[in-house]
Design a protein around this nucleic acid. Sequence first.
DNA 1: ATGTCACTCGGAGAGTGA
Length: 258
Amino acid sequence: MKIATYNVNGINARLPVLLRWLEFTAPDVVCLQELKTPQEKFPADIIAEAGYQGIWHGQKSWNGVAILARNLEIKEVGRGLPGDETDTQSRYLEAMVNNIRIGCLYLPNGNPTPGPKFDYKMQWFERLANRATELLALDEPIILTGDFNVIPTEQDVYRPERWLEDALFLPEVRQAYQNLLQQGWTDAIRKLYPDEKIYTFWDYFRNAYGRDAGLRIDHFLLSPHLVPRLTAAGVDRDVRGWEKSSDHAPVWIELADK
DNA sequence: ATGTCACTCGGAGAGTGA
């Protein structure tokens, strides 16, 4: 079973690239972030023609997350991250697919720092940690995946010294991510490739992709049940070089059948 | 600070976010 995550940076602007990538790699499940479209303008019909059913939580202009699957039932179990009834941003979807619980998330960017956007990021992170604790207590196979907007370590950025003041790399943000792992989650990419330089995002600015000036900010966190089933993982980094690409590349894992 | 995209409104291109 192949599961992917892809921050598309605009589902409608990215549709040709998304369809090309789906055909090329044919994942069983796909989590999308940054749809940047209202609920009613999600291109469900075209995606269905490509063989994928889905659930999505749209929002005008910004944010938005979706879970797609091919030949598998998707049962939605959560829409919006619990813990703040006043939070209107579409950043979290949770569903059961093939007996795995999947949380698709788009953690706030948090820049500029300091400021209200960074405060919102840290509050959202705390709510995510609370939900993650609840999920582990379920004692079932669970994946938390998406754009975490966190560079976990110096290994995950081309020039760490340039990112020290950034909301993706501040010590408290890195610590919050480590705290999440400490709960009992496994970072799938690092589990299989502890020492590799692996990036998932390259800025549109200054030919970042051409210079391989990247960041690793899209992650797969696995609950303990799934760790022994992890057989492969990777980044489809070539997709970042395609015409009209997102600034993120798709990331994927493969799980053995139970 | 810079750079480049995608979005909105409104019907061009500035403003916002990343």
